[in-house]
Simulated assay, not measured.
Amino acid sequence: MPRAKANGLELEYEAFGDPAHPPIVLVMGLGAQMVTWETGFCELLAEHGFHVVRFDNRDCGLSTWLDELGTPDPADLGQAEAPYSLSDLADDVVGLFDALGFAKAHVAGTSMGGMIVQRLALDHPDRLLSLTSIMSTTGDPAVGRTSPAALATLTQPPARSREAAIEQSIANYRTTGSPGYPESEEYLRHKATRAYDRAVHPAGTMRQLMAILTAADRTEGLREVRLPAVVVHGDADQMIDVTGGKATAAAIADAELVILPGMGHDLPEPLWPELVAAIVRATEREAG
């Protein structure tokens, strides 16, 4: 896969569709590699006439790891100073735009990726054509809360072996995935194995988590956003409660809110057509 030099880092990325078509950059969530945007999903979006780019955030997958910044102690989460911010992660995306020659692009992000997309709208509105925020929140601590079971998946100690890490990942998927669209054991094992064998990096995930937990509430800033926007959330999300999506849509002028019954904190294949349709609608909306 190619790498782009962006914001002083190297970002691993992959593109789908015709480069002459309008670009859509997909931003993944906490500790999640770009392959979590499944190939079939990216191809489906490309079929709608877009040049689709997925990439690994800093400190994840095959992009630059920043281990020299140290590994946060879980006991300090949200209290110690973060080694970098969501704005830094948003700047990485703009650096990717520059490396790929995108003056402007549509963006869609899930979870932390949704937070990054929101930050892009605040910090770099002139570089965006539209935004889609999926299973994310505004940073207001009163909304988008995490259930105790889901929180435990974030703070558990890293597994000490490949086999243990795969089993841990499967258990985590069972906790936070979509109850209305349960995945097979075979698929979950494939997904967990693929992620582990491609690049496992728990320290980077902890640094990303620090960026989330120390981020300011974006609500008031989002009220000033005048970009076409669609907000998507599942009503069964244990990682970020659906109130996070509702608050995001309420903050952005004229944003469309899509609530998907039975969807948790993942992107189940049966919902791909609805998710892609939501992203496409964002690209077709008029600015607020």
Rank of each mutant, 00 (worst) to 15 (best):
Leu89Phe: 05
Val52Asn: 02
Lys104Ile: 08
Leu86Trp: 01
Glu256Pro: 10
Met115Cys: 06
Arg218Ser: 13
Pro148His: 05
Thr175His: 11
Leu222Tyr: 00
Leu209Val: 04
Thr248Ser: 15
Val143Ile: 06
Thr71Ala: 12
Ile116Tyr: 08
Pro158Asn: 00
His190Glu: 15
Thr153Ser: 06
Gly61His: 00
Pro22Val: 04
Ile116Thr: 09
His233Val: 08
Ile279Trp: 07
Ala152Val: 05
Asp254Gly: 12
Asp126Asn: 11
Leu227Ile: 11
Val258Met: 10
Asp56Val: 07
Ala247Val: 01
His21Thr: 09
Glu47Met: 08
Asp235Glu: 06
Ala255Lys: 09
Ala251Ile: 09
Gln156Pro: 07
Met115Ala: 03
Trp65Tyr: 14
Asp91Ser: 15
Gly264His: 12
Gly245Trp: 02
Gly262Met: 12
Ala20His: 01
Ala229Gln: 01
Gly245Arg: 06
Thr64Asn: 09
Ala159Thr: 02
Leu86Cys: 00
Arg218Ile: 04
Gly40Tyr: 03
His265Val: 03
Val200Trp: 11
Pro202Leu: 06
Leu257Trp: 05
Glu47Trp: 09
Ala99Glu: 04
His106Ile: 01
Leu89Cys: 12
Leu96Ser: 12
Asp88Tyr: 08
Leu213Gln: 15
Glu256Gly: 08
Ala90Arg: 09
Ser63Trp: 03
Met135Asp: 13
Thr64Met: 09
Leu260Ile: 15
Arg281Lys: 11
Asp254Trp: 07
Val25Gln: 12
Asp126His: 12
Val93Phe: 04
Asp98Lys: 05
Tyr84His: 00
Ala215Asn: 15
Asp76Val: 01
Lys191Cys: 13
Pro23His: 05
